[in-house]
Design a binder for these strands. Structure first.
Length: 684
DNA sequence: GAGTTTGAAACT
DNA sequence: CAGTTTCAAACTC
């Protein structure tokens, strides 16, 4: 059935024969839904087919898809099993099998050819889909599904599923074949499909699903070996990284996550095996291995990586703002997963691709696509430069003596990354070799505290800038999840987690004598109080639709509106959804710097942004963030004349719990995540 | 680099 | 939940 159909489809059949051919039957079988599917598919292809990875397009999409995909991976052991089984079947298919396999293989090969070039993984898949008109429709569907599981894919699948489940398996086989075939891009693609998600997921991770994000981080395992292989394959000469650079860069952009050194608990299957192999080979020289990992500057998937990345970025951005410089220095940055994405991929790729790889701070951020600029030599030098002195900074390293790096005391472990060579830990168990142990320990810890591995800092987009221009410059939106408990440091040293994260203290803090430069607890409280009052007033004065207000806010919002900075970021990263979540990233990236920017800049940014985004989107984003954010804005009065946006919820009560608002809290979260996704497509 | 301080994490 | 201990980072010298 499938074969016949596929062949028919592939080979241009005279229309006259259609009636007789299976194709005809196939067509007949097509339901109205099918038509819809094709339509959607077409759209997808069109957009995707445009090889040049429009940052805008890719990132949103990618992140979007990845997220869902990742979840799958994560949630289901089945998946790994399925993959394994499929994997196993691959060989079988090659040997024996049906035409399907052959076809698939061919397709795969073609894909490789096409994709092996410079196209980002995403594009690879895309190209596959779009490029192969003749390829089995099912295959396309599968691809589509994989690429965008959350998006249109499901529909396509449904339709496809009607044809048969085999199709799906075929599609998977394709991927697997590619992978098998090896380190080549194809393999990469396979991995990408699976692993890219973590990255992006992080991006989304923000407020909506912290927990999940934390897990994702952990899951975002990366097989360095593979990566290296990829690198080699791309250029004819492996020894000449230079040639590779461009390609890698491109690739890296889209699959930065892969390169991260992370704990991968999810997919233990093949990758795990590989890792184990690697380790066995280098058991004695764990260091060597780790070093390789270490090479990756941003390695740490998680907070660490982010922080590092953000640092680089920040430094650049920060310089602009002299005032903020000091603080910036002290604060590596924020910890937002999202941000990492932008930065990390490149950094990682570069670093990895290059033997000496270090962290090219300057290049990474600002100009993601400019790989050519990076001269390998210079790059290496830079990296080394950065690495050496900053090693401590660029890479998280622990110094654990007794915890075996299996407790949250260990920064690496807490960040969800494996310890690497540079770590000075003793009896470290936080190594890929002990993956099982690590996993078990992690679970144990999570059982105690589900949020143990969640980001410590929650950044809300909206509130970000709510602070006024004020000196306090408190990143209103960003707050430490649990708050600090400082007694003697006055929240002015890195002992204080709030301070360390570059965020102000909040109600959650139990600190004494808080003088947090990013925002005092008192200020926070006052802000809340003030906001509440304002809100009340506003409510009284304007009882119109809340929804209306919310929507209006974005556009009409006062300078006080936090959005601006946020939007500003958006420009670079066109995710609508990100707007909210990303705030974090934004926040971080610009991190502290962002909020420090002069109002003028902010305003400007706002203005610029507005045009870019649809009002709707903003509205959505706007509303949500507010709700979510506890943001205490120090100068609420000045800020929110309208007081529309002013967080009604916050006002709810002086206490954090109440602040969020009973009703709003849970509900808001949901709204946020859901609406944003759909919106993305339309914009694109 | 060693020693001290600090506060989070872990334990009771 | 509170008190205590353990731990490693941050800090100081």
């Amino acid at each position: 059935m499938d074969n016949a159909e596929k062949k028919k489809i592939e080979t241009p059949t005279p229309k006259s024969k259609f009636e007789d051919s299976p194709v005809f039957n196939f067509i007949n079988n097509l339901s109205p839904i099918e038509a819809v599917r094709s339509t959607s598919t077409v759209q997808t292809f069109n957009s995707l087919s445009f090889t040049s990875p429009p940052p805008v397009f890719t990132s949103p999409h990618a992140s979007f898809h990845r997220e869902s995909r990742f979840f799958r991976c994560h949630n289901s052991v089945e998946r790994s099993k399925a993959l394994e089984s499929l994997h196993g079947s691959v060989s079988k298919g090659e040997v024996g099998a049906s035409g399907e396999v052959d076809l698939n293989k061919e397709a795969t090969l073609e894909q490789e050819d096409e994709t092996s070039c410079e196209l980002p993984l995403i594009l690879k898949s895309d190209s596959q889909a779009s490029g192969h008109v003749d390829s089995p429709g099912t295959g396309d569907i599968v691809t589509e599904m994989l690429l965008d599981p959350s998006g249109n894919a499901p529909q396509g699948l449904d339709n496809a599923s009607s044809s048969s489940s085999e199709d799906v398996s075929v599609g998977l086989r394709k991927i697997l074949d590619a992978q098998e075939e090896n380190d080549t891009p194809g393999a990469d693609a396979a991995e990408l499909l699976v692993f890219r998600s973590p990255n992006d997921s992080e991006a989304f991770g923000c407020l909506v699903d912290k927990i999940s994000s934390s897990e994702r981080r952990f899951c975002a395992g990366v097989k360095l070996t593979k990566q290296h292989d990829i690198t080699k394959d791309v250029p004819a000469n492996a020894n000449e990284p230079l040639a590779v650079v461009p390609n890698q860069s491109v690739l890296s952009l889209h699959r930065g996550s892969m390169r991260r050194r992370c704990l991968d608990f999810e997919v233990l299957g093949k990758r795990k095996k590989d890792i184990a192999d690697d380790h066995q080979q280098t058991v004695g020289d764990n260091k060597a291995e780790s070093s390789s990992k270490c090479v990756v500057p941003g390695i740490g998937l998680h907070l660490n990586a982010i922080a590092m990345a953000s640092r680089g970025i920040k430094i650049n951005t920060i310089h602009e703002d002299s005032a903020s410089l000091e603080i910036q220095k002290n604060f590596p940055g924020s910890v937002t997963p999202v941000q990492s994405q932008d930065i990390m991929p490149e950094t990682l790729d570069q670093a990895e691709s290059e033997p000496g790889g270090g962290l090219a701070v300057e290049e990474e951020t600002p100009k993601p696509l400019v790989f050519e600029e990076l001269n390998q030599d210079s790059l290496q030098k830079k990296k080394r430069k950065v690495e050496e002195p900053g090693e401590g900074e660029s890479c998280k390293r622990c110094n654990c003596k007794k915890s075996k790096c299996l407790k949250l005391y260990c920064e690496c472990f807490a960040a969800g990354v494996y310890c690497i060579e540079p770590c000075s830990c003793v009896d470290c168990f936080n190594r890929p070799i002990h993956e099982d142990t690590v996993l078990a320990t992690r679970k144990q810890i999570e059982s105690r505290n589900p949020l143990a591995f969640a980001p410590k800092v929650i950044r809300n987009s909206d509130s970000i800038m709510e602070t006024t221009d004020d000196a306090s410059k408190t990143p209103a939106s960003a707050r430490h999840k649990r708050g600090c408990n400082c007694k003697k440091s006055n929240c002015l040293k890195k002992y204080c987690e709030c301070f360390q994260s570059g965020v102000g203290c909040s109600i959650n803090c139990r600190c004494e004598g808080c003088k947090n430069a990013f925002g005092k607890k008192d200020g926070y409280l006052l802000a809340i109080m003030g906001s509440k009052q304002e809100e009340d007033l506003s409510k009284i004065q304007q009882k119109p639709d809340l929804s209306k207000d919310v929507e209006q806010n974005p556009s009409s919002d006062q300078p006080s509106t936090p959005l601006p900075p946020y939007r500003h970021m958006v420009v670079h990263q066109p995710f609508l959804s990100k707007n909210r979540l990303p705030p974090t990233q934004f926040f971080l990236g610009a991190g502290s710097s962002s909020f420090r920017k002069p109002d003028g800049d902010l305003t400007h940014a706002r203005n610029e942004k507005k045009p870019l985004e649809t009002v709707t989107e903003e509205d959505k984003t706007e509303v949500m963030p507010e709700i979510l954010s506890n943001t205490p804005i120090t100068t609420i009065k000045a800020i929110s004349p309208n007081s529309k946006r002013v967080s009604p919820p916050h006002i709810g009560s002086s206490e954090s719990g109440s602040i969020l608002g009973k009703r709003t809290n849970g509900r808001k979260l949901i709204l946020r995540s859901i609406p944003s996704f759909p919106s993305l497509n339309p914009n694109q």
